[in-house]
Amino acid sequence: MEVSSFVDSTFFSLVIFPIIIFAMRLCDVSLMTIRIIFVSKGIKFWASVLGFFEITVWLIAISQVMNNLDKPLYAIAYALGFATGNYLGAFLEEKIAIGVNLVRVITNKEAQPLVDYLNKEGFGVTSIDAEGSKGPVKIIYSVVRRKDLKKIIDIVNEFNPNAFYSIEEVRGINKGIFPPQNVNFKFRNKLTRKGK
């Protein structure tokens, strides 16, 4: 079968081309999601590069849908690509994990074992005594790379599963103490549990 006859075939029109439109939309929406995150984090150059590819792919995909309005399957493929692209973009952003977060932990337990353990694992920690609605508490602050966020939350939960914590995105930092990259955290049963 010649290429031109294959492209003109019903199979190509009803199966292959909608898949191509879906894949293009999947790609451009994923790029858009990551580009928006880059813009919010001040990564201007790469946001611009991604924007160029995003809009190029989008223009090709939308032109094919607009030129074939008599084929609703193309519009459905376009919409499915959009929905799936949002999910994929968010998934990729989680895996890339760019930036830093502020973790704030409030606990009514004796927190020194947690502070000591976090320091030992390379996290910068600031702790202060405070007064909560039900008595004295300890507030612990740590600025962590997003890649280390799950590790520090696991450590906090191991120390005190009932501790209150909040996480905020940090736009910029100056200096700081961070654990070395690719550290294997094994903390189970290493924390002294006081004041249960």
Score class of each variant (00 low, 15 high):
residue 1 M to C: 09
residue 1 M to P: 13
residue 4 S to V: 11
residue 4 S to Q: 11
residue 5 S to F: 06
residue 6 F to E: 00
residue 14 L to S: 14
residue 15 V to H: 00
residue 15 V to M: 04
residue 16 I to L: 13
residue 17 F to S: 03
residue 17 F to G: 00
residue 19 I to A: 15
residue 20 I to Y: 05
residue 21 I to M: 06
residue 22 F to G: 07
residue 23 A to D: 02
residue 23 A to R: 02
residue 23 A to G: 09
residue 23 A to T: 13
residue 26 L to P: 04
residue 26 L to H: 08
residue 26 L to V: 12
residue 27 C to E: 06
residue 27 C to I: 14
residue 28 D to F: 11
residue 35 R to C: 07
residue 35 R to Y: 05
residue 39 V to L: 15
residue 39 V to D: 13
residue 40 S to C: 13
residue 42 G to I: 08
residue 42 G to V: 07
residue 42 G to T: 06
residue 43 I to W: 00
residue 44 K to E: 08
residue 44 K to R: 11
residue 45 F to Y: 11
residue 46 W to A: 00
residue 46 W to K: 00
residue 47 A to N: 00
residue 47 A to E: 02
residue 48 S to V: 10
residue 48 S to D: 11
residue 49 V to C: 09
residue 51 G to P: 09
residue 52 F to N: 07
residue 52 F to Q: 06
residue 53 F to T: 05
residue 54 E to S: 13
residue 54 E to T: 12
residue 54 E to M: 14
residue 57 V to T: 11
residue 57 V to S: 01
residue 59 L to P: 02
residue 62 I to T: 11
residue 63 S to R: 08
residue 64 Q to H: 05
residue 66 M to W: 05
residue 67 N to Q: 01
residue 69 L to H: 00
residue 70 D to Y: 05
residue 72 P to G: 10
residue 72 P to I: 12
residue 75 A to N: 09
residue 75 A to I: 13
residue 76 I to C: 05
residue 78 Y to P: 12
residue 79 A to C: 14
residue 84 T to I: 12
residue 86 N to V: 13
residue 87 Y to K: 03
residue 87 Y to E: 03
residue 88 L to A: 14
residue 89 G to C: 10
residue 90 A to Q: 07
residue 90 A to R: 02
residue 91 F to C: 01
residue 91 F to G: 00
residue 91 F to R: 11
residue 92 L to P: 08
residue 94 E to Y: 09
residue 95 K to I: 11
residue 99 G to Q: 11
residue 102 L to F: 03
residue 102 L to G: 02
residue 104 R to F: 03
residue 105 V to M: 09
residue 106 I to V: 15
residue 106 I to G: 02
residue 107 T to C: 09
residue 109 K to F: 01
residue 114 L to G: 06
residue 117 Y to P: 04
residue 119 N to S: 14
residue 119 N to V: 08
residue 120 K to Y: 14
residue 121 E to G: 03
residue 125 V to R: 01
residue 127 S to K: 03
residue 129 D to T: 07
residue 130 A to N: 10
residue 131 E to R: 08
residue 134 K to I: 11
residue 135 G to W: 07
residue 137 V to E: 13
residue 138 K to C: 12
residue 139 I to T: 08
residue 139 I to N: 01
residue 142 S to W: 03
residue 143 V to D: 01
residue 143 V to L: 03
residue 144 V to Q: 02
residue 144 V to K: 00
residue 144 V to D: 03
residue 147 K to M: 13
residue 150 K to G: 09
residue 150 K to C: 10
residue 150 K to F: 15
residue 151 K to V: 12
residue 152 I to C: 09
residue 154 D to Q: 09
residue 155 I to W: 01
residue 157 N to P: 00
residue 161 P to V: 10
residue 161 P to W: 05
residue 162 N to E: 14
residue 163 A to G: 06
residue 163 A to S: 12
residue 163 A to Q: 04
residue 164 F to T: 07
residue 164 F to K: 03
residue 165 Y to N: 04
residue 167 I to P: 02
residue 168 E to L: 08
residue 171 R to E: 13
residue 172 G to S: 13
residue 174 N to E: 14
residue 175 K to E: 13
residue 178 F to L: 12
residue 179 P to F: 04
residue 180 P to L: 11
residue 181 Q to W: 10
residue 182 N to K: 13
residue 183 V to M: 10
residue 184 N to C: 03
residue 185 F to W: 10
residue 185 F to A: 04
residue 185 F to E: 04
residue 186 K to N: 14
residue 186 K to A: 06
residue 188 R to L: 06
residue 189 N to F: 09
residue 191 L to K: 03
residue 193 R to M: 12
residue 193 R to E: 12
residue 194 K to N: 12
residue 194 K to D: 08
residue 196 K to V: 14
